[in-house]
């Protein structure tokens, strides 16, 4: 359980990290927190020739407010994001999701961008990014490009990032202020903080009469990538979120599930757990909005 040999370089800037990656001929990997990458290296599932460390790059950390979004720099530690008051106020769904990410020790080291770049199917940050339709900003020696979350996650542990690209930031849309607003994040795992067997995210905006004007629903652990449930969310818009409406939305969501089986849970268990988590997340968001 020791990593194979590799070369190591500490980047002083994001541009330098990109140059180092470009020079590694596809054998280089960015290391930020290392909480996903180092276990993969220890198990020899990943064997980079060069690790490019971006921990010393100060401008890859931090959270800033834009007009209709929050910009989270990729190497921002998850613990810092979890404690960030701006994030809590403007992106409560992400704050809730972060509470389920790993443990104290891994959140202190693990980063927002690192979780996204590895794209574990059970990862809460990936689920929040997909549900909120975040945009991911990738930089290479050739320049920057913006990738929509829906195009970013392409499979289990697989993303649209090219070998020579470094994820530098994530832009999370912040919804315009609504008279009533609520979020829900629910997850089930073997022990608290273990990998999610199923996780669900919900965000709702209602008008002053209690009619749902905008809804976003997502599921993690229910397929190889985070699922964004557009049809189910669409079913809620224009309703008062009565019991029948919620039930109809949940029924629509069920069609999209494609859970995988592994050592921890069968596909059938995951299917039922995903449905139950979605019902709870939706109930949580609804209760908060109507609060």
């Amino acid at each position: 359980m020791k990593a194979a040999e590799f070369d190591y370089a500490r980047a002083a800037s994001a541009d330098e990290a990109c140059r180092l990656l470009a020079g590694a001929g596809g054998e280089g990997r960015i290391i930020a927190g290392g909480q996903t990458l180092v276990p993969l290296m220890a198990m020899r599932l990943v064997r980079p020739a060069l690790l490019v460390d971006i921990n010393a790059v100060a401008d890859l950390r931090g959270i800033e407010a834009g007009e209709n979004h929050l910009n989270v720099q990729a190497a921002t530690p998850q613990a810092d994001a979890l404690a960030n008051l701006l994030l809590r106020r403007r992106l409560p769904l992400l704050t809730k999701a972060l509470g389920f990410v790993g443990h104290v020790q891994t959140r202190n080291r693990g980063t927002i961008g690192g979780s996204l770049a590895h794209a574990d199917p059970a990862a809460e940050i990936c689920l929040a990014a997909a549900t909120l339709e975040a945009e991911l900003i990738a930089r290479s020696a050739q320049g920057e490009r913006i990738i929509a979350a829906r195009d970013f996650f392409i499979g289990a542990m697989a993303t649209a990032l090219a070998e020579e690209e470094c994820l530098v930031a994530v832009r999370f849309p912040v919804w315009p202020t609504a008279p009533r607003f609520g979020t829900g994040f629910q997850e089930t795992s073997i022990r608290r903080s273990d990998f999610a067997l199923a996780a669900a995210a919900a965000q709702l905006a209602l008008d002053e009469r209690g009619v749902c004007r905008r809804a976003a629903l997502g599921l993690g652990g229910a397929a190889t990538t985070p699922l964004v449930l557009e049809e189910a969310a669409g079913r809620l818009v224009g309703t008062t979120l009565a019991e029948d409406d919620v039930a109809a939305a949940l029924a629509l969501a069920e069609k999209d599930l494609a859970p995988i089986a592994d050592l921890h849970a069968s596909a059938e268990y995951r299917r039922r757990a995903a449905g139950a988590m979605l019902a709870r997340a939706l109930a949580e968001a609804r209760a908060e909005a109507l609060g």
């Binding site: 190591y8 290391i31 180092v38 276990p39 690790l51 921990n55 020790q105 891994t106 202190n108 080291r109």
Partner: peptide, 12 residues
């Protein structure tokens, strides 16, 4: 801050 020392390389 508490961290796991098996997931950090000494050089880091």
């Amino acid at each position: 801050r508490p961290v796991r020392s098996c997931l950090i390389f000494a050089v880091q």
